[in-house]
Design a protein around this nucleic acid. Structure first.
Lengths: 249, 249
DNA sequence: ATATTATTTGCTGTTTTATGCAATTTTATT
DNA sequence: AATAAAATTGCATAAAACAGCAAATAATAT
């Protein structure tokens, strides 16, 4: 039996049951426990699973609390959040969207800056509420279970009655020529309302979501005033956006 | 059973019930109490929960009262919450107030009951959002930092446009003859609006807050339809309320 | 093909870790 | 203060991890 086959079997078992015992694997593969131990050690070093005393567990199984997306994506979001935070001005009235990138942005807001923040995201509101100099105003309405934001007529209604200096939206899918899109109609509606309610709109966007589209349109690309990504843009790349009135950051 | 699995089970139980007894866990996992104690100790050191005498409690219950180090300190609130939950009917449209007692109530709502819940409390909304059969509608407005609820004109405005079957309010200070009071004017305003928006009002109240008053009046005692406390009331005690149209539970 | 080298595997003894039990101390409640 | 429950401590046992070694296997060079 080849090592690679064993590795494959172990990974399959881990995915299937969320956990395995070294003794079970050793018996099933008919190899010594030491071999299994060495296999699991390697797989652990390759970050394919997590080795624990007596066995191994699936990576996804580790925590149910803070959705531990991959670490790489998180670091990208933090880069974006830091860039966006540098745009903040004292005393501003802003809006912060839902989603993990915007949550990261909310977390990174300095404690000494004075802001009035509208939001429709429950986690964002919780985070902002711990900033001593931020006044939080929550946009009410029906709560979307997965997204943890308010959606629906009540939300768009309330949004139609407010005006903010800057909105920071973390919307999904951006195509230079077609504009911003999303796959959820309700979410598209609130995002449209948010953009309408803001004098300037800042888009927080991971580069991998560039040049992709979904079912429903939010707005044209030039409805965005500033786009923040994790990249350092060179002139060639910037040219793509040159015809649109978007500031790339 | 791997240690990691036990940890996960313990954490899940803590999230669900806010508190667990070491003896319960030991029985459920079929390990000795010492093992459970060691597990909980580790989880405490990892800040995944808070270990207390006899068990563990969920974080977020950092009630910074000095001697809240026993597992039964929450029991009054849980007794009230359980009583109140028994009043729930399938399909009802209800409102849930802020505060720790109401949060306890929200947590204890059975997973299988179908409800539409309005709330103005961020923690309550987060909890309800994890109940598969509860539709959550958040009352928007300015967020009160300490209370973690919405206050102000925006909130009372939105409340004036809704009507619920039952509201569960966890207001502070109750005096049989004078009525309900509180020391925060803004909170009094929203509570008044809530009572107005509900066909029936249920008051969740720890007995120690009975017969005390504060600056601002919320309503008369007979504006309350049902009062839930942690006590078993005898006839003598009930007589106090006999002249008012309040159902004591 | 054969010899040489490198890698893998299983075994041994040792060390570490996990677990349960009993005796003692601490804590909470009446 | 008295009592009962829980925490702590020390200890024994067993399981697992580890390190080193030698045989077996695979890879490579000659």
């Amino acid at each position: 039996m080849l090592k690679e086959e064993r590795h494959q079997t172990i990974l399959t078992q881990v995915e299937l049951h969320n956990r395995v015992l070294l003794t079970d694997i050793a018996e099933r593969l008919d190899v010594s426990i030491d071999t299994v131990r060495r296999d699991v050690k390697e797989l652990d070093q390759e970050s394919k699973l997590r080795k624990v005393h007596g066995g191994a567990i699936s990576l996804g199984y580790t925590t149910n609390s803070t959705r531990n997306n991959n670490i790489y994506a998180l670091s990208q979001k933090i880069i974006i959040a830091e860039k966006a935070a540098s745009l903040l001005k004292n005393g501003a009235v802003i809006f912060i969207d839902g989603g993990t990138t915007c949550l990261e942005f909310a977390r990174i807001i300095p404690l000494d800056i004075q802001l009035t923040c509208f939001t429709l995201s429950l986690p964002v509101a919780m985070v902002l509420n711990n900033k001593p100099n931020v006044e939080v105003i929550f946009v009410g309405g029906q709560i979307s279970r997965e997204a943890q934001i308010t959606i629906g007529a009540m939300a768009t209604n309330m949004l139609s009655e407010i005006k903010v200096d800057y909105s920071f939206i973390g919307t999904g899918y951006v195509d230079v020529s077609y504009g911003l899109t999303d796959f959820d109609w309700d979410i598209v509606q609130v995002k449209k309302a948010v953009i309408k309610a803001s004098k300037k709109t800042v888009l927080l966007c991971i580069s991998e979501k560039l040049n992709s589209q979904h079912r429903y349109k939010i707005c044209d690309i030039n409805a965005i005033d500033t786009m923040v990504t994790e990249l350092d843009w060179n002139d060639d790349q910037l040219k793509l956006f040159s015809s649109h009135d978007v500031h790339i950051f």
